[in-house]
Amino acid sequence: MSRFTEELSLIPRTARIVAASVWIAATTGLIVLVKSGVDRELASAPPALRIFVTLFPPIVLTIYALLIGYVYADAKRRGMRYVMWTLLAVFIPDGIGIILYFVLRDPPMRACPSCAQLAKSGFTFCPHCGTSLLPTCPNCGRGVELGWANCPHCGTKLPVPGTRAA
């Protein structure tokens, strides 16, 4: 599971501190609430359930806080609008914002082979040094992949390598 730990290390320190605080605060608050007997049904429930109610929700909330931190850092390194995505992750309820982020996030940035600077993954040319990152269509200049017969953007037939294209 080293991929997992690798991704976890991305979470910024602030987020970890917030998460830890949430955990402490929530656990404390819940202990107080449960002990106070405000909820009659819970007061008469078996002790195992009362302990569960005290321990489990804080864990979930802590995970939520850590996820927000991850969204912030990950969106940043992928060249996305990380403030917007972080806010969405926070405010769209029930974790839907977080799911949305993971479904819609951009692929990781790629290093340019000549100047080694990072560029977003869809780019055809490096924004720093201009070297071509992908083969291009001779007609519309957009990026195409090896082995394609036609350009998917403008439809021109792509030249076969080795022939002298006009």
Partner: peptide, 24 residues
Amino acid sequence: IVGLIVFAWVLTLLSWPLVRLLTG
């Protein structure tokens, strides 16, 4: 994403009793 969907469900189901508990 699969893990997150599970998490989202947990979060949803958790909000019911938690709100109830908080509002006493």
